[in-house]
Amino acid sequence: MKIDMTVNGRNVSGEVEGRTLLVEFLREGLGLTGTHVGCDTSQCGACVVHVDGAAVKACSIFAAECDGAQVATIEGQGNADGSLGAIQQAFQDYHGLQCGFCTPGMVMSAAALLKDNPKPSEAEVRDYLQGNLCRCTGYHNIVKAILAASGQEVAPVARVEA
């Protein structure tokens, strides 16, 4: 079947089978490989994208369900000049990533949270991220990064001096 959608502000079309997942269409059909496939069971959150403004795990929705939708992926989160967006920059500044596998889903979840709740508390950030798994960071710096991206005061990350 033919589908049309807007992805990161660009109109795209493609032929998909009814069983094609959105994450497959984005990665294989459009070459947008920033959306990661971690578990294929919607448990890890590495594949979070926005569909019509809502955070969605792209491994849990068919591409055909997004026909006509506005889809945003991690590739669309940067600034127009190619620099990092505010949330991405905060993840870098506050060391909110290590291996980086979960980072696209974390950034997309953070963007959805901050759209709905511009000044969340630490507890609200931690609660919102329950659908995103990270095996490297322990979440502490991810939470700091999201709080910093919201414009709140955050204690700096300790730096080791040589």
Rank of each mutant, 00 (worst) to 15 (best):
S13L: 08
R135S: 01
T41G: 06
S109E: 13
Q152N: 01
L113D: 08
V71Q: 03
V51E: 12
V48H: 10
R27M: 10
I87L: 09
V154H: 00
G82W: 11
G45V: 13
R159D: 04
C136D: 09
V71T: 07
L147P: 03
A145L: 01
N11F: 09
S150W: 02
Q88A: 07
V125N: 03
Q77N: 09
G76W: 13
D116S: 14
N11Q: 15
T33R: 11
Q92L: 12
K2R: 15
V37D: 07
A72D: 15
A162G: 13
C102T: 08
V107F: 02
M108P: 12
R10I: 14
S60P: 14
Q152Y: 00
E161H: 04
E124N: 04
L113S: 04
N141T: 05
T41C: 08
E153N: 00
K57M: 15
I142E: 13
I142L: 06
N117H: 12
Q77H: 10
N141K: 01
E122R: 01
C59N: 12
G100M: 10
E24K: 05
G85Q: 13
A55T: 14
L114F: 12
V23H: 08
G138D: 04
G29A: 08
S13H: 13
M1E: 15
A145W: 00
L84I: 06
M1S: 15
G9C: 08
D52W: 03
K57A: 14
P104A: 03
F101H: 03
D52K: 02
M106R: 03
T6I: 15
A111T: 14
K119T: 14
T33G: 05
C136I: 10
I74F: 07
V51T: 07
V48G: 03
G76D: 14
R159N: 02
T6E: 05
S13D: 13
V107Y: 02
D116M: 06
G14R: 07
F101W: 07
M5Q: 01
G151Q: 06
I142A: 02
V12P: 09
F91L: 06
P156S: 00
F25Q: 04
S42Y: 06
V16Y: 03
T137D: 06
I87S: 07
N8V: 10
L26T: 08
V160C: 00
L21F: 14
T73G: 06
V107W: 04
T73W: 09
Y139F: 10
F91K: 05
D67V: 08
A148Q: 01
A155M: 00
G38N: 11
I87A: 05
A90D: 05
E161T: 07
T33H: 05
A72W: 06
E122K: 00
T41D: 15
R135Q: 02
Q98K: 02
E122N: 01
M108S: 03
C134Q: 08
T20F: 11
C102E: 11
F62S: 09
T6V: 15
Q98M: 08
Q98S: 06
A123S: 12
D52G: 04
A58F: 12
R27I: 13
A155V: 01
G151D: 05
Q152L: 00
G82L: 03
Y94I: 00
C59A: 12
A111R: 07
L97H: 04
G45C: 12
D93V: 01
G85A: 11
I142H: 07
Q77M: 15
Q152W: 01
V71S: 02
Q70A: 14
D127Y: 02
F25L: 08
S60H: 11
